[in-house]
Design a protein around this nucleic acid. Structure first.
Lengths: 352, 352
DNA sequence: GGTTGTTGCTAAACCGGGTTAGCAGGCGGC
DNA sequence: GCCGCCTGCTAACCCGGTTTAGCAACAACC
């Protein structure tokens, strides 16, 4: 940015002191180094008058810290939900005077390498390595060099990196709990996974964990899962198909859709069969995608706390940076962020 | 990042030359400054062997350029579409070896000021000032200092800043064109604006321009707009209400919804009245929000080219940076990015 | 042989801060 | 009167690059 900035030297001259003195005063080390009050005042006033702002670039050169963190993700665009994750990270960073570099790898190894390098070249203080859907990732070697945190991802093999993920198991329990609380005991079907533990789509962790939580809560209540279908992808059309198939041979009382997009498809299939939600069939889901409030009736769903995930990642990373030196090489922690239930209009008591 | 980086001095020593020579060679100025081929080779090899990467921070200190641009927006999270804008900017930046700082103002003036300052402190080469929906913005004073571009926004009063916006007028023409091409001549209603030019929601430019384009194309074909309703907000519920009201007193043949969320509401209202899309009523819309492919039938819509907008903004900004000195203080240009039509299943010929 | 040019490289300054070592000057104690 | 100590400040170096000015060594020319 063009208009020449005021430098420390100018402030010092204006106050009639040396650059050293000005630097010390502005760094708050005046007392400690016995600078007289009158000089201190002169410096502070000169700085204010000239609207002095230290050049972070030059400071970084000396101190090695840039007050900048890198946010690397596989992609932000495909999952619209992810914006909130960045937003949370952004705000948490701003509150602490840090800025965020953003980068996308598109899942390509060489882009990833280039990006991490570009960030390292710019001396970032740490890196948040984010995935747009929860999964196990291979930790790039470049990450182990400096402070870093995995976001919405866990390391494939043991690693010193900490990770921040949504608490999907608890979310599964919560979703099942919503149905149990409403009085459902029979005819509970799953769309997108189950009924057995192994019936989940590969790669995504959410499937496994949500299913685990669901089975756990229902099992504890002595309730049997009536059925379930794996879907090749968690998109509306597969939810639609799975639900149609189900309706052709059974009459469910409640559906647990493994995410909101599947629920959109389920809604359409239920409509085709003339079944009313929630009077005939209750529906619960996961994610709290915006579409959940657009469909009728509004969908009760367990929200992915993207905003909170982003915040938490920054907090964990900064803690990591602070105690950088004591790097005891032990394994990183896994921080689980709770997923809140959004009660809306798609669940009712089963009619007797 | 911790593991000490190789410095230029080390490369120079390893090659047995001065830092100056090493710097010149690696900057590609060896030929120009008559460095012998053998020395050049030694330096390049030393650099490769030591895996030397220049420290951009220190380079920036000297050259005043950081190969970094700031992306400031009012908010990325509320409009999920906006992720693509950032993505486009990100990729265009990466292709040119630049990184992106991201910041959000939340529309608050002091956050905005702080953010622009933080970026200036970090010596960004230029700033992209983005709005998440197209509108006229008051250009912050801090922006006029250095190279900057408005994205998805135009300046409220004449400004030297260039802007990049979607070509909404042309989009309006295109939407109307889709209906005309299908043979529609009567019973074309607008949801969300119109029928008169002044009937648009305030603030958002998209309304005005889309309406202008629609009126233009229909007028040119000698077709009259049968009716229209302004909606206080372009959300599904208002689209639903507006369409219900319309259906209670008329039988439209085609709806032009001013955006996809309104169209979602329109779909629901049409369904309530037992009207089939597109057999009974055709629907066209704007934005190409992901939901457009989730509803049945899939929605024909004119897409907001978010990705392209982001790319274009970076291109325009970099051009601006390059010819920075010649700043002739004239007014900035407005770059209009075309909005492509996504033909899907919601438009058919009117039955006779 | 002295002047001028060219070739091939380097010393040193510079960017704007942070930091270490140390210097004047006044004071008290022996 | 000399020594040591405290007070209050600053000279000088550092970070890691870029850039300017200039210096040897040798060749060419008159």
């Amino acid at each position: 940015m063009s208009p020449r900035r005021v430098t420390l030297a100018e402030v010092a001259e204006h106050a009639g002191v040396s650059r050293t003195t000005a630097s010390l005063v502005l760094a708050g080390r005046g007392r400690e180094l016995r600078i007289s009050e009158s000089v201190e005042r002169r410096v502070v006033e000169a700085a204010k008058e000239l609207e002095y702002r230290p050049n972070i670039v030059s400071r970084s050169l000396r101190t090695g810290t840039t007050r900048t963190i890198g946010f690397v993700s596989d992609t932000v665009a495909t999952s619209r939900l992810a914006g909130d994750m960045i937003k949370g990270a952004l705000e948490a960073a701003r509150e602490r005077g840090m800025m965020l570099f953003i980068g996308e790898t598109e899942g390509e190894a060489d882009l990833e390498r280039g990006l991490l390098q570009a960030m390292s070249d710019r001396q970032v203080d740490g890196i948040i390595f984010a995935s747009m859907f929860t999964r196990a990732v291979k930790v790039p070697a470049a990450l182990t060099a400096g402070p870093a945190v995995l976001l919405n991802a866990v390391p494939k093999r043991a690693s010193a990196l900490s990770s921040v993920v949504p608490d999907e198991v608890e979310a599964g329990r919560a979703a099942a709990g919503v149905l149990l609380d409403a009085g459902h005991r029979d005819g509970i079907h799953l769309i997108g996974a189950g009924p057995r533990v192994r019936d989940v789509p590969p790669e995504a962790l959410a499937g496994v964990e949500r299913l685990t939580g669901i089975r756990d809560a229902l099992g504890q209540a002595g309730v049997r899962i009536a059925g379930g279908r794996v879907c090749p992808d968690w998109q509306p059309e597969y939810g639609y198909e799975a639900t149609r198939e189900l309706l052709e041979r059974a009459r469910p009382r409640a559906l647990i859709c493994l995410n909101d997009r599947l629920a959109v498809g389920a809604y359409q299939a239920l409509d085709d069969f003339g079944l009313k939600i929630p009077a005939d069939v209750s529906v619960v889901s996961f994610d709290d995608h915006p579409v959940a409030t657009w469909i009728r009736p509004k969908l009760t769903t367990v929200a992915l706390p993207h905003y909170e995930l982003g915040r938490k990642a920054v907090e964990v990373l900064l803690a990591e940076i602070d105690r950088d030196r004591e790097k005891t090489g032990q394994e990183g922690e896994t921080h689980r962020v709770p997923m809140p239930v959004r009660i809306r209009d798609s669940v009712a008591a089963p009619d007797a």
